[in-house]
Write a protein that binds this DNA or RNA. Sequence first.
DNA 1: TGGTGATCATAC
DNA 2: GTATGATCACCA
Length: 226
Amino acid sequence: MTLVSKPESESELESRVLELAGLTLSQLADKIHWPVPENLKHDKGWIGQLLEVHLGASAGNLSEPDFQNLGIELKTIPLTAKHRAKETTFVCAVPLLNNIGLSWENSCVFHKLSRVLWLPVEAEPMIPLGKRRVGQGFIWSPSVDEMEDLKNDWEEFMELISLGQVETITAHLGESLQIRPKAANASVVTTGIGQSGMRKQTLPRGFYLRTSFTNQILQSFLKPEQ
DNA sequence: TGGTGATCATAC
DNA sequence: GTATGATCACCA
């Protein structure tokens, strides 16, 4: 398997991203001798990991950006036939404990989204996995407005959680962000804050970007306003 | 058919 | 269990 070195600059990373545009997942898998699964049912992270290898991402499963030296996080965007985001984007786990006084600027959402390499990939079920093509990726940071929307949602969520209201949060809440379960299954538990302020076992949850939010990012990339 | 709640693989 | 990577699957 060919080892791809880590990119030393954003421009080097961007040039690698351009080389991936238009290639199929089979082409990329063949290059590093990875088998292509029939579907993603049991390999949900396969595309993300495939692209990490090809771009020289280095963090593995550490709590670090994919490109540590550049401070850039890699996120794939599954695309519908209309080139819209098909799925929400997982950001990070929701801190359910010890979150008193946690500021937006110190939050995992802020850090994860400060600089992101978005890499669109065809995701129509009709297209066999190996024939799906990688789109044109781009490096992004939140605009002032986007940052404000994210912050507002995050602060609303964290207030509810610190008040022991985590069980009342559904995925309907939030404009740009949402909170949904993030666990192997519904029986997994972690420690959170209960209604009385005492610790209580509850389902682990994660912050996700709504598809409406990632679609706006895609649009602003396709139609940059001057 | 899209969005919400549930789930899958793997390393440690 | 928590971190990484996400998509599945059902129901309104």
